[in-house]
Computed example of a mutant assay.
Amino acid sequence: MKALIESIITPLVDYPEDIVVTKTEEDTKIVYHLTVHGDDVGKIIGKNGRIAKSIRTVVYAAKNEGEKRIYLDIM
Rank of each mutant, 00 (worst) to 15 (best):
Y60C: 06
P16K: 04
T22Q: 08
H33R: 13
E6L: 07
M1S: 11
G46A: 14
Y60H: 14
I8W: 04
K2G: 11
R69L: 06
Y60G: 08
A52C: 11
P16Y: 06
A62K: 06
D73G: 01
T10W: 04
I70W: 08
V20K: 14
L72N: 05
I51Y: 00
D39F: 07
L72R: 04
P16Q: 08
T10R: 05
A62M: 13
I9W: 00
G49I: 09
T28G: 13
I9L: 01
R50I: 12
Y15D: 15
S54T: 15
I45E: 12
K43S: 14
R69W: 02
E25W: 07
I55A: 00
Y15A: 07
P16H: 06
M75T: 08
I45K: 12
I9G: 00
R50A: 15
V13Q: 09
I44D: 02
I8H: 07
E65R: 12
I5F: 05
K63W: 00
P16V: 11
E25H: 06
T22M: 05
L4T: 03
V36K: 03
A61K: 03
Y71K: 05
K29E: 15
G46H: 09
I51V: 14
V20P: 02
E6M: 11
S7L: 11
T24A: 14
E67G: 01
H37Y: 14
T35Q: 12
Y32V: 07
H33F: 08
P11E: 12
R56W: 02
E6G: 01
I9T: 03
K2F: 01
G46Q: 07
I9C: 00
D73W: 01
S7G: 05
E6H: 02
Y15C: 06
D40R: 08
L34Q: 04
V41C: 07
G49Y: 03
K63T: 01
I5E: 00
T22Y: 04
N48C: 15
E26G: 09
D27I: 03
E65D: 15
V31N: 12
P16T: 11
Y15W: 11
V41D: 03
I51M: 10
I8N: 06
T57R: 01
P11V: 15
L4N: 02
P16M: 09
Y15G: 00
T35V: 12
P11L: 10
K23H: 01
Y60P: 00
A3S: 15
D18S: 14
I74V: 12
G38P: 05
D40P: 10
E25C: 04
K68R: 08
V13S: 07
M75A: 06
H33K: 14
Y15K: 13
E25G: 03
G42D: 08
R50T: 15
I74C: 04
A3R: 09
D27W: 00
N64E: 13
E26H: 04
K23F: 00
D73R: 08
R50C: 11
K47N: 13
S7P: 03
K43H: 13
